[in-house]
């Protein structure tokens, strides 16, 4: 799961359907969907957002949403 990822670790999204509809759409707009390779760039303290990178582009999203994304480590 994405929640356990630390900064610098990479993974491939296998299921994104548990995330809220709006967030899912926005991530899709940014080209992040099932099959995308993502890398966690940094994790903010106190349960704050995570910054992930996919295809050379950085996106910030909340930890609880990131935790709903199923990712397999690569």
């Amino acid at each position: 799961m994405f929640g356990s990822f630390k900064a610098g670790e990479k993974g491939k999204i296998i299921n994104i359907s548990k995330v809220g509809r709006l967030v899912q759409r926005r991530l899709l707009d940014l080209g992040i969907t099932e099959g995308s390779e993502v890398c966690v760039k940094c994790v903010m303290p106190f349960g704050g957002p995570v910054m992930i990178e996919s295809c050379g582009q950085c996106v910030g999203l909340r930890r609880k949403e990131a935790c709903l994304i199923e990712v397999e480590r690569i």
Binding site: G20, L30, P49, C58, V59, G60, E65
Partner: peptide
């Protein structure tokens, strides 16, 4: 209601 936070971080 639902909150949404997805932000693009430009270079």
């Amino acid at each position: 209601e639902a909150s949404l936070f997805v932000i693009e971080l430009p270079p």
